[in-house]
Nucleic acid binder design. Structure first.
Lengths: 190, 190
DNA sequence: GTCTATAGTCCGATAGAC
DNA sequence: GTCTATCGGACTATAGAC
């Protein structure tokens, strides 16, 4: 136990998924190739194919980790607050997670862009997840439209950044994030 | 003159651009290949390469036509109304064009998804265009945030549909479009 | 202006050494 | 569990007939 090698900072599988997101965010979904991912992760192609035997498996791994990470972070924030969580809390924290993760992890969300580019069939899983949230938040006092519009704007900001379409300065982005969080709160209180 | 062949319904160049958008929207940006576009347009690969000598040229053609079509449609609607056009009219009509074009032309906007997937460098042109609109609409009575949030939600709906991420029914979409058009109007009137 | 044929490159995936 | 080497196929692009 004492002289065991230090763990690699991040397991190879995670490093590969990080690299895949990075390639998509920096170079575009067309350049998500096994060679590029392996190179970007500092792993050989054979090493990649041990963890993800096909490109499909890599894409599924990206999507699965994305949704898992979002849910885990939302739940972490909800738990941290203690008390029983209302529907309004759930919307507020989720909006917060989606908007705050991107700056510190610029490739956040790249899994969906990559999946949509490679095989639209994969997006059924995303739509289902999205729909469940929508049905939940539609029951807030603000109703369906208010919640849906907030989610649409959050999605617009995120996808815009992933596609290098976003023209906002850091200051403007911060203002928009605050405005969206306020709007999310108002969905709960009317 | 009398027995001349009927014009093809649409010139080959337009058919090729239509086909390119269709491929991206239906199969994903990864499948935007010269072969697929030529096949989908009913043209040979050599025919495609006469109009667009490289894939880059095809992508630029897609982007150029997209922005031209949007501006042309906005200006057509503004002109139809006669009177001098205010900034508020411009926002309202643009939101209307972006939201109403998609249902009747499902691949509308695919040019941007394709460009972002293939070469993020192309997106500088899109950001510039976006920024110019933003600066214009920020001067509305509602201010920067109101206008930006409306544009973000519009973008979220459009990109969501292009990426097959949108879980909304036709009825729900219609409600959201109406709500967004109302919100756009309120940017002008405060 | 549109076609076929093909050159040269890059892709996903397999096989097998270590 | 990670590596190298390599196959067959798909890709972009060129050359040249019609």
């Amino acid at each position: 136990m004492y002289f065991r090698q230090p763990m690699p900072l991040r397991p190879a599988r995670e490093r590969l998924l990080d690299a895949a997101e990075r390639v998509v965010a920096e170079s575009g979904a067309t350049h998500l190739t096994l060679d590029n991912v392996a190179k970007s992760a500092g792993v050989s192609k054979g090493g990649l194919l041990y963890h993800f035997p096909t490109k499909e498996a890599l894409l599924e791994g990206m999507l699965t980790r994305h949704f898992h990470d979002v849910d885990a972070e939302v739940n972490k924030r909800l738990a941290r607050r203690g008390r029983k969580t209302s529907r309004g809390d759930m919307l507020r924290e989720r909006v917060g997670v989606l908007l705050e993760m991107h700056p510190e992890r610029p490739a956040f969300g790249a899994a969906m862009v990559a999946a949509a580019a490679d095989n639209p069939g994969h997006m059924a899983m995303c739509r289902t997840q999205y729909r469940a949230l929508l049905d939940e938040f539609a029951r807030l006092p603000g109703g369906f439209e208010r919640a849906a519009l907030v989610l649409l704007a959050v999605q617009g900001l995120l996808l815009g950044e992933l596609l290098h379409l976003s023209p906002y300065t850091h200051e403007e982005r911060a203002r928009l994030v605050k405005a969206l969080q306020r709007a999310a709160d108002q969905c709960g209180g009317s």
